[in-house]
Computed example of a mutant assay.
Amino acid sequence: MTLDLTEAVLIDIDLAGCNLQSANFIKAHFTGAASFGGAIFGGTTRFDGVMFGGNARFDGAMFGGNARFDGAMFGSDAWFDGATFGGDVGFGGVMFGGTTRFDGAMFGGDVGFGKAMFGGNARFDGATFGGTARFGEATFGGTVGFGGVMFGGTTRFDGTTFNGDARFGGVTFGGTARFGEATFGGTVGFGKATFGGNARFGGVMFSGTTWFGEAMFNGAAWFGEAKFGGNARFDGAMFSGDAWFGGAMFSGDAWFGGVMFGGTVGFGGAMFGGTTSFDGAALAGTSYDGPKPVAE
């Protein structure tokens, strides 16, 4: 089936399970619920500038080609659980008004959520990103979950705002992970996360408790000029490459117990406002510039 419903007004549409070879919904207005659960989109799919007035369900949908949702507005909940995207996907500038779910979704190509706004809670738990994933300057208004996500390529959260808690526990970043100048308003969890490439957290603002316990940094890690407003926990983390915390500010307690530093370590100019512990930390690299000697 081929559909071209550009600028159409659609009321309580139900295309769940349909097989659409080509679909164009540019600037369409969906009044009421819109159901595309389990639908198959064979070619390029366009939802640019669409307005969804009610709940929008794409759970289990399959997009064989590129999919564009840039500038769309979801007035209520948006469900993409278990959806499969075979090509590139664009959600740039999208406004999600309610709960947003991409749990278990699979993105085969590049994905863009740049400047998207998530008004409610957002979940990507268990999702897989095969290409570059861009969330730069996006805003998450509620709690956001990326637990167990697999990022295969470069991941960009530059300038992203997280107003609620952010959960990245057990995430795997296959390429470079960029969070420069991001703002975290709540509790942040990167416990047991794996950074396969370089990790860039320069200038990040962590307002609440921050967890990097047992995280693995296989490339260089930059936390220069980062600000930790609450307690910061890096217990048991492993830094295989260089680790830079120059100019960072730790307002609460800072725990680096049992950390393994494999490369050059720099804490020059860092400020520690609370209890600081490096008990059992080990240095295997060539130099250390920190607030306390590290046991070798």
Rank of each mutant, 00 (worst) to 15 (best):
D253G: 15
G49S: 14
G92Q: 02
A254E: 10
F118T: 05
D125K: 09
F151A: 12
F256N: 01
G86N: 00
G175K: 09
I11W: 05
A221Q: 04
F212L: 03
G141A: 03
A226E: 12
W222Y: 13
S35V: 12
R167N: 14
A8G: 09
R200W: 12
N19P: 06
P291N: 07
T2Q: 03
A166Q: 10
G169S: 08
F36Y: 09
S35E: 13
G269T: 08
F63W: 05
M62N: 02
F124Y: 03
R156Y: 15
K192Q: 03
F91Y: 04
G169Y: 02
A295Q: 06
A248T: 13
F162T: 09
N55M: 10
D110P: 06
R178C: 11
G49L: 12
F118Y: 09
F63D: 03
T128L: 13
I40E: 11
G142M: 07
T286I: 13
F85P: 01
G246E: 08
I40C: 13
G247H: 15
V111N: 02
G147R: 03
F47H: 07
F63Y: 06
K192A: 02
G49P: 12
F58V: 05
G145Y: 04
F261V: 14
A215S: 13
R167A: 12
G114H: 01
F179H: 12
F52P: 15
G258K: 07
N163A: 14
F52Q: 07
A193S: 11
F217D: 08
A83K: 07
E214R: 09
